[in-house]
Computed example of a mutant assay.
Amino acid sequence: MAATLSRLTAEILHKDPGLTSIAVSHVDPEHWFVGGPSLAAQRKTSFFLDIRITDETNTANEKAHYIDAVFKEIGALLGELHHESYVHVHDVRAAAYGFGGLTQQQRAVVARLQNPLTA
């Protein structure tokens, strides 16, 4: 699943796989309820993907394509998905998001200073 998500994130959202962080956690289908009954009772699977990207780095069409592709490919991995399986793409402001002690906004400034013709 992690490899599939990393690949789709690189192919569709153009994110560097070397900077893509994925954490997978499991909820027992007996403890996951959708529309009332548990997934176990419905004999279905589900997932909830929460992804953060820097705001304004992807178009609405790219995000829609990503959501569609994730739903299809994760469904192929997990089996019969409940329709209410979610992908939430957070567009996070560059000044409020980052890694390694720098915001994405700071990284963009550094990139422009280091290579003003390509940044």
Rank of each mutant, 00 (worst) to 15 (best):
H83A: 13
V87M: 04
G98P: 03
S85V: 03
V34I: 10
L8E: 01
P17V: 11
D55C: 04
H26D: 12
T54F: 00
L117R: 13
A2N: 11
V24R: 02
H31W: 13
L19Y: 08
A96V: 13
R52A: 13
Y97I: 07
Q114P: 06
I51Y: 06
A41G: 08
E84I: 10
H88V: 15
N115G: 08
H14M: 08
D50V: 10
R52F: 05
D68R: 04
A76G: 08
A23T: 10
Y86V: 12
A111K: 09
A69L: 00
H88W: 10
Q114V: 06
L117K: 10
T118Q: 15
Q106K: 12
L49R: 00
H65E: 09
S6V: 12
G75P: 06
F48S: 13
T9V: 14
R7N: 05
H82E: 14
S46R: 01
P17R: 15
G35Y: 13
N61D: 11
A3S: 15
A3R: 11
Q105W: 09
T45D: 12
G98I: 08
F33A: 14
R112I: 09
L5E: 00
L77F: 13
P37S: 11
G98E: 04
L13S: 01
H26L: 15
L13C: 00
A119M: 07
L39G: 02
N115Q: 11
A23L: 11
E80Q: 08
Q105Y: 07
V109H: 14
R43H: 11
L102W: 07
T54D: 03
R52T: 11
R112M: 13
F47N: 02
T57Q: 02
H83M: 09
L102M: 15
A2F: 00
A119H: 14
I74C: 07
T54M: 03
L13R: 02
Q114Y: 10
Q104W: 02
R7F: 05
E62G: 02
V110K: 14
Q104S: 12
L102V: 05
L8C: 06
I74Q: 00
A41K: 08
A10W: 02
H31M: 15
H90C: 11
A40I: 05
A108G: 04
I67F: 00
L39I: 07
R7D: 01
G79V: 05
Q106N: 11
A2M: 03
